[in-house]
Design a protein around this nucleic acid. Structure first.
Length: 735
DNA sequence: TGGGAGTGCTTTTTT
DNA sequence: AGCACTCCCA
């Protein structure tokens, strides 16, 4: 490596970087893959790299493209960059895959075959759109469930496959592909684009339009990618295409934190990238600045059980710190109450609630926790709920706005044609749909074809849209206010008894519009790209779809942080509780049978566990319960196999240690609830009891039936699986 | 039209 | 259990 030493030493950007970080930041222009372990300063390296490239004159801001997955990460990068460099980061191409694709398509909408004011469908819109399609084609939605069909369509798109390119092996597949094709046509006619389409459409735009491709290939000299392990096949191809003119790809990722294979992410992209781009610069960031030694050791020990890793071992200069605490409880309720007590103790020791996270595998688990927290009066915040722009009243208001931008947007039309109720029932809508299909037109343009009473009401609705469109010149916040008034949305919620919160949200929408205009409105910062935004309205609508709005009430409050392990990725906390560590829950039972590209679902669950553990800075609690209420019935689970993967010398059991694969003997004495006896089995065994089998080992009785000599019990043996055993035959012993 | 009862689903999730 | 969705009746 050769770089200008004096310049390097004078550059304060590079202060306090460790050797591998410094090497990564100052890499000469070439492709690079940075394997960045959890808490190793990944974002820092990425932003410092950009700042360094610019400040040393190796690239000008417009020559740089940086991609992330979430708006949060993109914003974080921009903020940090702005603090490092005296430049305007707003015009730079730093954003999410979808955000950048949107930008590209807005700038070249004609070449992409889209209307100027094309709208973006979020997943819910997409499903509604598919549903409507099935209805209009008289397709049985039992045979083709809209949800499943959306998955199929998105999966095809992520492979870069248009309907015409998908092969069919039977009638059903052919039919499904036909529906995919019809959906594509419907979107095109309506001038709407869903998330996957944003990517595929901009990929095709660049692939087919050579001058345009050359323009961008020559423009972008450095392409930087965050969370590279989460890219799907199409995103990787998109990157390859953009970097095809000799740009340098700088990809940062961690194969051990790949937890989105289930939605198409392909860790294989890391290996492919290394091979296809002959990456000579692979740098490992293994020094962790986040967690104490015991926590890291536990994480390393867990992830070591995964074969096929690129290989990495985190270390820290911090001391080993506290032991990892493990707690066993009888039920999910007991577990939650214990967490409450422990949190109270932590507070007495000076921990703030906001620095404590309660993590779980699936959202359904939050209920028991919330219940206990609520009863204890502990403030908490649950992440991952309904977001601002996804609320029904907001979507209604946005639908009116979308109709102002584009009357052919049938999804928006169908949403509000009869909301608030204006007497346009199913019958009139059916007539309208028939007319639209016959004329191959949008619902809106078919209105004159419908006659009778329904027709009159529809015409009145069309008139409402016209009136609203006449106001389109108003400043955006005023336009929104106008729409709320004239559409009748406001008075509708005023008359509803529980409508106050919705009214507040609608007012909040006006505020959102105002701050959007103040921050990002009135376009064209980027001199090179013209027509980047059609106008404030359409860019606000795109903003609403692409950035559903994380803001929730109580953001700044000192509240406990409740979230799934997935949504905790990228975050860190002083204290972390991982609850529900039971086989079947975490690892999730569905994962045990899954395989994707030769990799087992269990491995992904293990990476998820790795992510969870590495969120903790100082203290980590792991907890599990013998019984858990799920989907309305009580389940009996064994402790998670991941607990066995934590070296015992790092652990402090807060309850008597559970045996290998089984529960601690007679801990039930400490629990208030009395386990039910199985009357039918009529034996010494009861549901929930731990038993020992000569061949299968330790297990828990989860069900029983029959009696006397016919008595049979169902036992969960964990690794050996679930078995029905006849008591008269099987030699079972209480354990 | 709108509400009340009945039915079915339920891993993880960003854009 | 809890929620979203559908269907049917007043």
């Amino acid at each position: 490596m050769s770089y200008n030493l004096p310049a390097m030493f004078m550059n304060p950007l590079l202060d306090h970087l460790n050797a591998p970080q410094l090497a990564a930041v100052t890499l000469p222009p070439a492709h690079a893959l940075i394997l960045a372990g959890a808490g190793s300063g990944k974002t820092r390296v990425l932003t410092t790299r950009i700042a360094w490239l610019i400040s040393t004159g190796q690239v000008s801001p417009p020559g740089l493209l940086a991609v992330t997955f979430t708006n949060k990460a993109a914003k974080e990068m921009q903020t940090r960059l702005a603090s490092m460099l005296p430049i305007n980061v707003r015009g730079m191409w730093i954003g999410t895959f979808h955000g950048l694709c949107n930008r590209l398509l807005r700038a070249h909408y004609r070449d992409a075959g889209l209307p100027q004011l094309f709208q973006i469908l979020d997943s819910a819109d997409q499903q509604a759109s598919v549903k409507r399609l099935l209805k209009s084609l008289n397709v049985d939605d039992e045979k083709f469930p809209p949800r499943e069909l959306c998955h199929f369509i998105n999966a095809q798109r992520e492979q870069g496959m248009r309907a015409a390119a998908v092969e069919a092996y039977d009638d059903w597949a052919r039919k499904r592909i036909g529906l995919y094709e019809a959906y594509e046509a419907q979107c095109q006619r309506e001038g709407v684009v869903d998330f996957a389409e944003l990517l595929l459409r901009s990929y095709e735009l660049l692939e087919r339009n050579e001058p345009l491709r050359r323009h961008y290939q020559e423009r972008f000299r450095h392409v930087l990618v965050d969370e590279f392990q989460d890219t799907n096949k199409l995103q990787y191809r998109w990157l390859k295409l953009l970097a095809g003119g000799g740009a340098h790809l700088f990809c940062v990722g961690d194969d051990d934190q790949s937890i989105y294979a289930f939605r198409g992410a392909d860790v294989g992209n890391m290996g492919d990238f290394e091979r296809e781009f002959k990456v000579a610069n692979m740098i490992r960031l293994e020094q962790n600045y986040r967690s104490h030694g015991n926590i890291l050791d536990a994480a390393n020990a867990i992830i070591k059980n995964n074969p096929q890793r690129l290989g990495k071992n985190l270390w820290t200069e911090a001391g080993s710190g506290e032991p990892i605490r493990i707690y066993e409880s009888y039920s999910d309720g007991d577990e939650a109450r214990w967490i409450v007590e422990e949190v109270k103790a932590l507070q007495r020791d000076g921990h703030t609630r906001a620095e404590i996270a309660l993590l779980y595998r699936s959202n359904a688990q939050s209920r028991a926790l919330e219940h206990a927290l609520f009863n204890a009066g502990l403030p908490y915040r649950v992440y991952g709920g309904l977001r601002f722009f996804e609320r029904a009243e907001i979507k209604h208001a946005l639908a009116y706005l979308r109709l102002i931008a584009n009357t052919d947007d049938d999804t928006a039309f169908a949403r509000v044609v009869n909301f608030p109720a204006r007497g346009i029932g199913a019958r009139s809508l059916e007539n309208l749909q028939d007319a639209a299909r016959a004329a191959n037109s949008s619902l809106h343009s078919a209105i004159p074809q419908v006659f009778g009473a329904g027709g009159a009401k529809l015409a009145a609705f069309a008139q409402l849209i016209v009136t609203l469109r006449d106001a389109a010149h108003l400043p955006l916040p005023e336009l929104v206010d106008h729409v709320l008034e004239l559409s009748g949305l406001r008075s509708h919620y005023q008359n509803e008894k529980e409508g106050q919160e919705r009214l507040d949200n609608l007012d909040e929408l006006i505020n959102a519009a105002a701050s959007f205009v103040a921050e990002e409105g009135t376009p064209n910062q980027d001199g090179e790209i013209t027509g980047e935004f059609g106008n404030d309205l359409s860019s606000f609508l795109a903003h609403a779809s692409l950035e559903a709005g994380e803001h929730q009430a109580g953001e700044g409050d000192d509240a406990l942080q409740l979230m799934t392990v997935h949504s905790a990725k990228g975050l860190e906390f002083n204290v972390v509780f991982i609850s529900g560590l039971e086989d079947g829950l975490f690892p999730h039972e569905n994962s045990l049978s899954e395989t994707r590209d030769g990799k087992s679902g269990l491995e992904e669950e293990r990476r998820l566990m790795y992510v969870a553990v590495t969120r903790a800075r100082q203290r980590l609690y792991l907890s599990f319960a013998q019984t858990r209420m799920l989907h309305g019935q009580t389940r009996y689970n064994l402790p998670s196999r991941f607990l066995d993967e934590v070296p015992q010398e790092l652990v402090k059991w807060l309850t008597p240690r559970a045996g290998k694969g089984g529960f601690a003997a007679s801990t039930t004495t400490t629990y208030a609830a009395t386990p039910r006896r199985s009357e039918s089995a009529g034996s010494a065994f009861r549901i929930g009891q731990s038993v020992m089998h000569t061949k299968f080992g330790l297990g828990v009785i989860v069900n029983a039936e029959g009696g006397g000599t016919d008595a049979r019990v169902q036992v969960n043996f964990g690794h050996a699986g679930m078995k029905w055993l006849a008591l008269s035959v099987a030699k079972l012993e209480a354990a």
